[in-house]
Amino acid sequence: MSREAVLVDAQWVEEHIDDPSVVLVEVDEDTTAYDKGHIRGAVKLDWKQDLQDPVRRDFVNQEQLSQLLSERGISNDDTIVLYGGNNNWFAAYAYWYLRLYGHEKALLLDGGRKKWELDSRELSDDVPDRPATTYTAKDPNLSIRAFRDETVEAIGTKNLVDVRSPDEYAGRLLAPAHLPQEQAQRAGHIPTANNIPWSKAANDDGTFRSDDELRELYREAGVDFSKDTIAYCRIGERSAHTWFVLHELLEQPNVKNYDGSWTEYGSLVGVPVAVGDEPGEG
């Protein structure tokens, strides 16, 4: 994937806003954002209500996704353009998730909702009425999803990239600082993981840095591009942002998102944990 094949800018969106084969999808954690105005024609996806299983701790399965996208009027052949708040964290998560279930034509709007707003571009209150379709999700492609056991095995062998903020990595915070901190698991990081906050990959306005800057960022921070990589954060959405950078923009072949991330790892019994600012020993 080259940058042009996965990332579009606001001008592209404005030029394709009435293209019937293009579906804009806003993905948020805070879905009141969509209700306060969205890009004209955009469909809403709620990261939690729509994409997470209501009972098990997992994202929705193949059948649930097929049903969801059918109800929202999205077809297998549509080009899905994802954007959202939080610097596209949840849009990147949905992108990763749609790719995992084999959707061919997915794009991310560079800068997401924030850049669109900062540019004072038009927002609409109209909720689109899209006739239902028959969407068929493919078998999950697990080559881009890491589970806990292979993450433990990756200690000291693969690149582990912890994309949380330095204070979360060190164990001084348990969650991003816009959320209350009370949580039950241990603080710290997976030993040997390098801390490369997702935010280093983005500019203040939420757009991605250039490919050259990104490659230099990860190399300097200790990522060996000849090795496989697992990215993680707290719940897998910020690491989906970094997965997008490494796998889609920089075209690294073996990059997985560990969506169990710290909320799972930091609650496991008996696994090694490192605290402080250094990666620690394997």
Binding site: A33, G85, N86, N87, K114, S165, P166, D167, L173, P176, A177, H178, P197, S199, K200
Partner: peptide, 11 residues
């Protein structure tokens, strides 16, 4: 944070 690194953002 104290090093200038992004920690969080809210509208």
């Amino acid at each position: 944070d104290a090093t200038g690194e992004f920690t969080a953002e809210v509208p």
